[in-house]
Design a protein around this nucleic acid. Structure first.
Lengths: 339, 339
DNA sequence: TTGTAAGCGTTATCAC
DNA sequence: GTGATAACGCTTACAA
């Protein structure tokens, strides 16, 4: 029932279009690729021919001739299984796909096969792709930081090493953490703790710094800090330690929602109320945020936007346009019931 | 620090290999493609040349000449955002990638852009890919069932329409449901209800059928059935209706774990105990299964294996090998605490 | 501005 | 079994 019923006619080629339009193949090529100067008259007749023939350029031929592949690879880190089920990853990919859909580029995924990363490396460096997108959750720790020397590469999040030479887009973690903390201060809290993320990854460091600077700006103490590893249980452990210090504490900024969830359980288990006794603000605005009770006030992490921006940056790089090495996406405070 | 330091030398071509090995390009091509008959002596010398030059065939050229792309597309259904965050989808992809990594095929994703599905169609039918993989969660409802007429296509799950002409791999839903029910019967239960899935999608139908046949084989009644839509709340609603019938009921088979979760809440709310008063078995073995309390006994749904099998089937189709239209993957009972 | 023609790196069809 | 040689469909100097 589709449009191609009874269609065994051969795929139209550039040559056929040229013939139909009565021009040379070169001209058709120019029109198709939006070349700067072609007689508008001829151009339109070519376009008509393209329409009626339903012509679509052959990628392989184009690639072979131009040495451009119009393909960008999404490099999926080693531990495929986990990474893929990670909503962060999924959302980034969604953003990437969304942007790429507005361009001529195709997305292809290569999971850097545990088997042989060398195969992946060869594929990438073997002229099969125009650029690479590297996604690796919170951790900036990936072994592909040297890629950008040979191929346009964009990272999700500031790479731990070689950041100075890398193109990447990250969320403005420091600003977000600062906004979260300010919310607490404005709410009248004066003894504001934090459950920080790992200090060996950028988001962990930056969010701690944001909390600290907001506090210092307000003339408050930054002594109430414990570190977790972004998991729910680590959040609970940290909260417990915080409470066991026996110091006044009326609010806590958790560096991500999962740790906030852990903090929730401990706070409740001690018979304290949220937000009356202790106000809580998280970071990420992930699934946990709304499923917690009371609903968590948190910092929205624009993940899909991050993916879109990464793709946009990469295309700019590929096409040789000037581009900023660093893109920092703004976060926003989502006020719910915990602070 | 990588292997390509100081490497500005051009990518080796088939021609260079031929020169180095002292044979014709045709021979090199034969060796590289594992052609049936080439003098083993020459072959090895070619292989040596390939090694030393670190030759890798150029995909575009190969595609142009052979009219094979060595690329398979994973078609992501309309609602990208949701689908992608769905662990089912993620896991299928993982399996697909795993299999493809053992072959020469590349995976490329195209999200059938809401914008213009026509673009997608043209891409697929325009000779850019060798085959397509269509994934659409439980529902067999996708508008791409006609694709297989023009391109090797494999579906995840039995398509609702045109199933007779489609290649697909599905989990053996009926057998699984039957096993779940048998578990209940063997546990001494005699009044076994079911919370069935939607009857307009294959898994819903098949799982209901499995429950029914197990019951009938045991000489038990199949009157205790209510239908949900695979969501947690629909499970709760169905359970409530079941209980409100006022008939004896000592066990329930939920067609998926989410509905089982819904049933749990109602059972507890009525002051009944699991499994003492009512035993429960689910289906899918997803995240809910272990997070419920008591842990849910359920049917394991081999999702990654499904992805692997899909990819394998597709490659067989592409390479013209004989292949079964239908592949049914076995499920397994995972015994935990609810039955 | 437009056309001519030379590739791009393989595979495939032939003779040898 | 092996080697010329013609495609494959498009881009891109270079000429006109």
């Amino acid at each position: 029932m589709s449009a191609e019923s009874g269609a065994d006619r051969p795929t139209p080629t550039l040559e056929m279009v040229a013939a139909l339009a009565g021009v040379s193949r070169a001209t058709v090529s120019r029109v198709v690729n939006g070349a700067p100067s072609v007689d508008p008259h001829l151009a339109s007749s070519v376009e008509k021919a393209v329409q009626t023939l339903n012509y679509v350029p052959n990628r392989a031929a184009r690639t072979l001739a131009s040495r451009r592949t119009y393909t960008v690879t999404l490099l999926v880190p080693e531990s495929t299984s986990k990474v893929f089920a990670d909503p962060f990853f999924a959302t980034v990919v969604e953003g990437v796909a969304r942007y790429l859909n507005t361009t001529d580029y195709m997305l292809n995924m290569v999971t850097s096969s545990e088997a042989n990363p060398e195969k992946t490396r060869r594929y990438l460096l073997g002229g099969n792709v125009d650029g690479v997108l590297v996604v690796s959750h919170h951790s900036g720790d990936h072994s592909w930081t040297q890629l950008n020397a040979s191929l346009p590469t964009v990272f999700a999040g500031r790479p731990l090493v070689n950041a100075a030479n890398s193109y990447f887009v990250e969320v403005d973690n420091e600003e977000g953490a600062s906004a979260a903390t300010s919310r607490l201060i404005e709410g009248g809290r004066r003894h504001i703790a934090t459950i920080a993320g790992p200090q060996d990854m950028p988001p962990g460091v930056d969010r701690l710094q944001g909390w600290r600077s907001a506090l210092l700006d307000a003339g408050l103490s930054d002594s109430l800090a414990e570190t977790g590893d972004f998991t729910v249980v680590s959040g609970a452990v940290a909260m417990r330690r915080l409470l066991d210090r026996g110091q006044p504490l009326d609010a806590v900024f958790a560096a991500n929602d999962q740790m906030a969830a852990g903090a929730y359980s401990v706070i409740k288990e001690r018979g304290l109320r949220i937000p009356e006794d202790i106000a809580v603000v998280g970071f990420d605005d992930d699934l946990y945020a709304t499923s917690l009770s009371p609903a968590l006030t948190t910092i929205h992490h624009p993940i899909a936007a991050l993916g879109e921006k990464m793709a946009e940056l990469l295309v700019e790089l590929i096409e040789g346009r000037a581009a900023e090495r660093i893109h920092r996406l703004p976060t926003s405070l989502v006020v719910r019931d915990s602070a």
